[in-house]
Design a binder for these strands. Structure first.
Lengths: 170, 170
DNA sequence: GGAAATTCGTTTCATTTGAAACTATTATTC
DNA sequence: GAATAATAGTTTCAAATGAAACGAATTTCC
């Protein structure tokens, strides 16, 4: 199993530029940064804020936990995004009377206006990205994203079992 | 162009959970975090460090700028990853005699050993992720990633032109 | 040959991030 | 019905991030 390490064959050919997780990361970073600029520069929103507004625009009222589920963000991020949106008067936050731990979040009138202004921009950006793909490729992309995400979620927990809790700090 | 905003039809149906940039982000985050655990917990490496090691394992010697290009990371991140790797004695850093601004980076012997230990793990994780896909789907995924990344890179600069520099602060 | 501009890589600084601890409220258990 | 556990959301703290400023080496231009 040993190989001549520094000599001819450096390693069983690992090509980072072909590695799917890496390529996903590069693609996502470019896309996210580009789109973030759309609502970032013009509306002063960050990615977490826009995501919260997006789900509230469709499913309000929601609790913070609901927003976590729908946006796939952790509760700290959601908490801070909600605070900023509340300060900017883009959402309204009430307490759920049935369970006073929970909040009921919804877009304010101006938040709704902003939401409606951003949506077409976001859709246009997405269309621009997918422009070169055939309809069949778009369908395949849709299916692949679904399947890969399901698979990744199924695998994720399995990655933290065998060796004990080693808080490696080197 | 105006619609009844709070009444029946809340908005021209924007579904975050179908939005490709969002889905890419969710998928990438799960995958990255899962894989980062592989070399994070066992070898004390972060994602930037592992990426630097990966490209050095294949293309050494490289300058920091070369590493930036090949890993798609900015120079600050690379600089810090390099410093940590140097401290951990996993890479060697020399000055390019032809241009003394540039550094010549390569894996050390122990870095090479670690690299060779991580590569199969990374490949296994990738294989696990792609397991459910048919060979045809894998080829399509490969092509889609290439095309979308090219397209995204082409679009990215275009996203910062029309309206002047408006430091919008909500 | 030397001033100005450019490039390489590091450092500074303000912001973002998330794990863990925390408060408040509700559900469960005995 | 009190003690215990669980859940919703916030705060704390240390680490990661990246834009901008920086020092050093090199190239460009006159």
């Amino acid at each position: 199993m040993k190989r001549i390490s520094r000599g001819k064959n450096p390693t069983p050919d690992f090509a980072l530029e072909r590695f799917v997780p890496y390529r996903l990361s590069v693609l996502t970073n470019i896309v996210s940064r580009t789109i973030a600029r759309l609502y970032g520069e013009r509306f002063g929103l960050g990615i977490p804020e826009w995501r919260v507004m997006a789900v509230l625009g469709r499913f309000a009222p929601l609790s913070s936990t609901d927003v976590c589920t729908r946006t796939a963000m952790d509760k700290v991020r959601v908490s801070r995004a909600v605070e900023r949106l509340r300060r900017a008067q883009l959402i309204e936050q009430a307490t759920d009377p049935k369970d006073r731990r929970r909040s009921r979040l919804r877009l304010s009138t101006s938040g709704d206006r902003m939401h409606d202004a951003i949506v077409p921009m976001a859709q246009a950006a997405e269309a621009l990205l997918l422009d070169g793909l055939s309809p069949a490729e778009k369908r395949t992309l849709d299916r692949l994203l679904t399947r890969l995400t399901e698979r990744a979620m199924a695998i994720a927990p399995a990655a933290l079992d065998p060796s004990g809790p080693d808080p490696g700090d080197a």
